[in-house]
């Protein structure tokens, strides 16, 4: 604890000394602070402009060329022809009756003729 007292005494003695005159002022700090802010703002604006220009240049350099002619639609395909076979209405294995209704086919009607 003795050395703590020595330290305190030394600090107190030093406090009693007359310090050199202070050349700085609050106004000086404020002026410097404003200059620093202004410089930071300028650097930020310039930096963002350079970054934007760089990204644009990279995009122009590496993205595919869009000046080629637009794609032309191909020739029309031929119309499709549909063929359908007749569909039996009576199940397999059942003997067909004489008076059975006519077999209907899609898009086609057949009549059962006897004789």
């Amino acid at each position: 604890m003795d050395h703590e007292d020595k330290l305190r005494t030394t600090f107190s003695v030093l406090r009693g000394e007359v310090p050199p005159p202070n050349a700085n002022s609050a106004f000086g700090v404020i002026t410097r602070g404003r200059a620093v802010r202004s410089r930071r703002r300028t650097i930020a604006v310039a930096g963002s402009a350079v970054a934007t220009a760089g990204v644009t240049a990279l995009a122009l350099a590496f993205l595919p060329d869009t000046s080629s002619p637009p794609p032309v639609p191909g020739p029309p395909l031929p119309t499709s022809t549909t063929t359908t076979s007749g569909v039996r209405t009576t199940p397999k294995g059942v003997p067909e009756r004489q008076d059975s209704p006519p077999v209907t086919t899609t898009g086609q009607v057949t009549t059962n003729t006897t004789g």
């Binding site: 310090p19 050199p20 700085n24 609050a26 000086g28 700090v29 404020i30 602070g33 620093v36």
Partner: peptide, 23 residues
């Protein structure tokens, strides 16, 4: 001054501290 040991450095450190506080 007690930390730095001389008035010149103390002035510099103090001004830097005040400037940081102002910002």
């Amino acid at each position: 001054f007690l930390m730095c040991g001389n008035w010149h450095e103390a002035e510099d450190v103090l001004q830097s501290a005040f400037l940081k506080l102002y910002l």
